[in-house]
């Protein structure tokens, strides 16, 4: 399959390793991975701030650009950005039905759960809000993780409460955002895991910032980095 990568802007700049990992996994599964150049932002910050027209304009721009590469599927390591495209376009773009969040592409589109990855460590899973409640992603990533050799999945309680990131919310209401994040951190630490993983680099950025500030030993790691083999393999 010819798969185009949609790399969200903050992944591009802050966490490029996540996109590299997605690329590795897809290639390992025998797909032809392309990266249409000229990608910027999907428009999510504008969308959530109420600047709908600006968001729609950027979402359309990105979808048109991806469509030009004529891919069989578009895959992104962010369910939140995939959702932003759908919401901004109100479902009205021919490419949308071929745009997938990374884990959902693997489990639902390809029907794959074991991709032969190895990872040593105890991992807890953070159910990010948009993938969980809007894209209904819950069991898929867990199945993918359980199939990883050497990985022990431990649940945090609760796993599905917001980490407090919420895009510009994190800086518009920093105290509330941090209060929410601290509860997430407690859940992570109580789980006894050495790593916290998610489909979203944005949540992991919030969690990482908080973990680092309090000097925690727990490390955030994107699902793709576990499956694609990275620094911790």
């Amino acid at each position: 399959m010819r798969v185009a990568l949609f790399v969200p802007c903050f992944v591009d700049v802050l966490k490029p390793g996540v996109a590299v990992a997605v690329c590795r996994v897809l290639s390992r599964l025998g797909h032809d991975v392309i990266y249409p150049e000229g990608q910027t932002c999907c428009g999510q910050p504008a969308l959530n701030a109420g600047f709908h027209r600006d968001a729609t304009c950027l979402a359309r721009r990105l979808l048109d650009l991806l469509a030009k590469a004529d891919p069989d599927a578009v895959v992104s390591p962010s369910g939140s950005c995939v959702l932003a495209l759908r919401t901004a376009m109100e479902g009205d773009h021919h490419l949308l039905e071929r745009v997938f969040e990374f884990s959902q592409f693997l489990t639902d589109r390809l029907g794959v759960t074991d991709i032969g990855a190895k990872f040593t460590g105890r991992v807890t899973w953070h159910d990010a809000c948009h993938p969980l409640r809007e894209l209904r992603i819950r069991e898929g990533p867990r199945r993918l993780l359980q199939a990883v050799q050497g990985l022990e999945l431990v649940e945090m309680e609760p796993s599905d409460e917001c980490c407090g990131f919420g895009g510009t919310f994190a800086v518009k209401a920093p105290l509330v955002s941090t209060g929410m994040g601290e509860r997430k951190l407690k859940a992570i630490e109580d789980s006894g895991a050495a790593f916290v993983s998610s489909t979203e680099s944005s949540c992991l950025m919030q969690i990482e910032g908080l973990l680092e500030k309090r000097g925690s030993a727990v490390r955030p790691i994107h699902l793709a980095e576990i499956l694609g083999g990275g620094a911790h393999e």
């Binding site: 992944v11 591009d12 700049v13 802050l14 966490k15 490029p16 994040g181 910032g209 680092e212 500030k213």
Partner: peptide, 12 residues
């Protein structure tokens, strides 16, 4: 309240 994110040496 949070450590600043570190930009990667190279973008994707």
């Amino acid at each position: 309240t949070r450590a600043a994110p570190q930009p990667a040496p190279r973008s994707f």
